[in-house]
């Protein structure tokens, strides 16, 4: 039993880390899609955010003497702002120019890694940006002594994880308890009805895409901070994984968190099957564990697709003359 506890204590911080990242980026996708704009540019926006964030952190680290976590906070903020600005390209094309939303988003996905690598190389002579430091908080005072939860949530943790929790709560309240959230959701379901009631569809959709950009940009910096010590022009497909989470989670925040947990859980378990009692004895090849979240996604989608809760107007450019 003690052994099991130790193993869970080891694995949980990693699961939480991947889960926080997946759910924040998926939440970004949710804001955009609930407002009626498909956003498959999450991956590209993440890369831009990661690039700007990592670069800022390096500059701040070299020139200013401030505590590590403040630096992380600055990096995360810059990443979010960059993501927001970058997503405006998609917003402009998709909302104002009424372009095909898949194509404009794909353009961002292609553009981001190339731009990041090119810029990094022109400036530093190296495509990778070395943040060098690990920003883990080894222990949160007092809280880490709580039984079970202490080691799971408050040791070997990252500032970004706690930010993610706060953002999630705020996002939930905004979506379901404020007039803005109601308007946003109505824009994704029936923009003409919303328009007839005086809601400015363009404004709301811009807001939706920009929030999604900010969250994806933040997610990009989270990726650099919590998995690696450098930015290398990629975020390992987490943007697309987040889309899968979003769709499996049926565009609902709470379900989305559960799916993100599932993905993160299998991701981590697949790497440490030998270390976990019970799982070790199953003797399954690592590949099976890696497949599980995707198989689970397929099954979940197959079961729930009839009652799919995709926003009805998602992907359709708004045309006031077309009722």
């Amino acid at each position: 039993m003690i052994e099991l506890m130790n193993q869970l204590n080891f694995a949980f911080p990693y699961i939480i880390r991947a889960m926080a990242l997946l759910s924040i980026v998926a939440l970004g996708g949710l804001f955009s899609e609930r407002s009626g704009v498909v956003n498959i540019a999450l991956e590209g926006i993440m890369i831009m955010g990661a690039f700007a964030g990592a670069w800022t952190m390096i500059i701040v680290m070299n020139n200013m003497n401030i505590p590590l976590q403040w630096n992380a906070f600055i990096g995360l903020s810059v990443g979010a702002i960059t993501g927001m600005v970058f997503s405006l390209f998609h917003a402009f094309a998709a909302i104002h120019m009424k372009s095909n939303q898949i194509i404009s988003a794909t353009a961002l996905n292609f553009f981001a890694p190339a731009f990041a690598i090119f810029t990094a190389r022109s400036v530093t002579g190296d495509r990778a940006l070395n943040v060098r430091l690990d920003y883990a908080i080894s222990e949160v005072p007092i809280l880490s002594n709580i039984p079970i939860l202490g080691p799971w949530l408050f040791t070997n943790a990252y500032l970004s994880t706690y930010l993610a929790v706060i953002i999630f709560i705020v996002a939930y309240i905004v979506l379901y308890k404020t007039p803005f959230g109601l308007r946003l959701r109505s824009c994704g379901e029936n923009p003409h009805a919303a328009d007839s009631l005086g809601v400015n569809i363009y404004k709301i959709r811009y807001a939706g895409v920009m929030i999604s950009g900010a969250l994806a940009g933040l997610g990009g910096v989270m990726f650099v901070l919590s998995f690696s010590t450098r930015f290398d022009g990629a975020v390992a497909g987490f943007g697309f994984l987040a889309l899968a989470v979003l769709i499996s989670g049926q565009w609902k925040p709470i379900r989305l968190i559960l799916i993100a947990f599932l993905f993160a859980l299998f991701r981590v378990i697949s790497e440490i099957p030998d270390e976990l009692v019970g799982i070790r004895n199953l003797n399954l090849p690592q590949e099976i564990w890696r497949m599980l979240p995707f198989i689970a996604t397929l099954v979940i989608l197959a079961i729930t697709s009839k009652g799919s809760a995709a926003p009805r107007a998602v992907g359709e450019p708004f045309d006031a003359g077309k009722r």
Binding site: Y14, R17, A18, F223, S226, F227, S228, R230, D232, A234, A236, R267, V268, S270, E271, I272
Partner: peptide, 8 residues
């Protein structure tokens, strides 16, 4: 290529 699973 870098990935979170390598780190775990």
């Amino acid at each position: 290529a870098p990935d979170d699973t390598h780190r775990v």
